[in-house]
Design a protein around this nucleic acid. Structure first.
Lengths: 345, 345
DNA sequence: CCTTCGTGTGGGAACGCTCCCACATTTGGA
DNA sequence: TCCAAATGTGGGAGCGTTCCCACACGAAGG
């Protein structure tokens, strides 16, 4: 039971394969009657043209590659959804690879994408390659790709690629400022991994907001959670036991937030009476509990679909100038009034 | 700047393209020196063979298709992770499509998979096709695929395909039984969509456990949440307002659980003192709150990787008998002692 | 009337691989 | 010593498309 080819369809319909090709692609002149006849035969044999043969012949595939650090992290899953929907809507096929945040796996994924001759690639880099050598290596890999590329979420320094990223600095700044406006003076930060670009940006946004408002950053209130749930949990336990808590925290990401909350609940501290906070991105299902879990909100699905759109726009016009879209997260206060009551002198 | 082909490599290395092909695939006889020479040239030119040309020639691709109802639902995201890792590990490339739980989109995804000539397909059906016509149509589509297939999570009746599914009946049964053993007599159910197979199975498991233990199913305690968060929330509000609560619930899935908890917290009821429950699948981050959120646990990542393994085993031996793996979820009680205190006379 | 253009159609080369076959060289056993 | 097997290599057909070119026909314009 061989798979049916364009030749089979042509023979059955009594036409040449060129005509069938024209019907499939809707190109050139074909008599209306012929179109009907050919389409009938295609339906009858349930024919689907081979993408491999087509892309070999056209020297161009209809696939879009996507490389994500972790496919089941809710944040990346949302990005995936956004990309997937847009890719699907525009008639492309999605090839997905996970890098598990490892440069080696990422390199392998890039090789797979090259073998597949993807028409375009969207990548959330495995890390931010702030190290010069690693950065140069990655840059080389991306250049070698030979297809349009969109860098998503994690910025790559100095790279003139299209990108969709978040304004981490201003996000952290406005989150911290919101706490200050609510009357807090002693504000801490659960910092992320300061070796990562986004970790530093968020830290600096926090510092700047403090400084601008005449508040000092107290090193005792800086918790190095490294974007990790377990680490954050342990550091927070320490801080609680040492009785070294500020009145509020800016928390650098959702995983740290989970570690933070676990420690807080364990110690039977209540939010925001004992401790207030604003987190970067919301926790899934946080709204179940009628507790004021303020956070920075960004349209994550939109991140993904915008990246895909950027790619398609580059297909249409390869010469257009590099476009860097920056998403500014908004502060969403779910318990602002409670925050105010916590204000100190 | 053309992409470099096997011919280019052959010319540069001073050998025939057949030899290069043998080096790439590690087949046949090639002199050790020649291997080194060819590999050097490939590295130098950063050559990657075209997957399209290869699969056209071999009449077989190295891609695996995956169709999921919702890519950003944490449950399916975990499945995706499991599949992705296994597919990657075995040197295949993953093509992903989302069906958004719509039969039409699913059919389009299947067409894409056929065009891509995927070597195998893993599918979580958009719905359970309990309707005869819909079922027959879907069955036809799957048969036409012409490649090995694994049905995942949602069983398709009467279909002799390899599959990995959950024993929903016994899961619901043991969850209900756990509540009974904890001393509860008045036990309700947040039922899922009873038009869906898994919804019915879970409902029947609950009924059976009640019956076997001499307890009656009180229709007042049957909440039809349809696996939907909002619907469950509203129905629960009603039940609370009408003061028609059992002492415990079996909850059919994680979305219902979210709706349930929202209503419970809103009414300031506490778990498990006012109301106890066991849910199907755990809520992400539920362990943040030191509250006894008992649930049915299943290794979701494993679901995905097992499906991939099943597929690969069928590649190795197309004639092997159909294998149906059934995962039995385990009851995980996080507050069993508290449940007991709630026991009635 | 012949030419030109618009419309409709078919054949063949090319895309970059794999795999079969042909052939050359070396090795080893009778 | 000779022949067969093992080792090593290259060429060409074929995979299923697209696309260029050739061609056929009728209508319109000179």
């Amino acid at each position: 039971m061989r798979t049916v080819t364009i030749q089979d369809i042509a023979r059955e319909a009594g036409v040449g394969k060129s005509t069938v090709s024209r019907v499939i692609n809707g190109t050139g002149y074909v008599h209306a009657d012929t179109v009907v006849k050919v389409k009938d035969v295609m339906t009858k044999y349930n024919y689907q043209p081979s993408a491999a043969a087509r892309s070999l012949s056209k020297k161009e595939s209809d696939t879009i590659g996507l490389i994500l650090p972790e496919v089941n992290n809710p944040f990346f899953a949302d990005i995936l959804k956004g990309v997937s929907q847009m890719v699907d809507k525009c008639g492309y096929t999605l090839i997905l690879c996970g890098s598990d945040n490892e440069a080696a796996k990422e390199a392998r994924a890039l090789e797979a994408m090259r073998r597949q001759r993807v028409k375009g690639l969207i990548i959330v880099p495995a890390n931010d390659y702030s190290n010069e050598t690693a950065h140069a290596h990655m840059e080389k890999l991306l250049r070698e790709l030979g297809c349009p590329l969109v860098v998503l979420d994690r910025p790559m320094l100095r790279m003139d690629f299209d990108s969709v990223t978040t304004d981490n600095f201003s996000g952290a700044y406005s989150a911290t400022e919101a706490l200050i406006r609510a009357g807090h003076k002693r504000i801490g930060i659960i910092a992320g991994d300061l070796n990562l670009f986004i970790g530093r940006e968020r830290y600096e946004g926090y510092c700047k907001a403090m400084e601008q408002n005449g508040l000092a950053v107290d090193p005792h209130y800086v918790v190095l959670g490294k974007f990790d749930r377990q680490i954050t949990y342990e550091k927070m336990r320490q801080a609680i036991r040492a009785n070294q808590l500020p009145t509020a925290y800016f928390i650098s990401n959702n995983l740290s937030e989970m570690g933070f909350l676990t420690a807080i609940h364990e110690a039977r501290l209540s939010v925001p009476d004992d401790i207030a906070f604003v987190g970067f991105d919301k926790l899934q299902g946080q709204d179940i509990f009628n507790v004021p879990y303020s956070h920075l909100e960004r349209e994550v699905l939109t991140l993904g679909s915008k990246a895909a759109q950027l790619l398609f726009r580059r297909f249409d016009n390869p010469e257009r100038p590099v476009e860097k879209i920056v998403i500014v997260p908004r502060v969403k206060l779910l318990g602002s009034e409670l925050l105010v009551t916590r204000a100190e002198g």
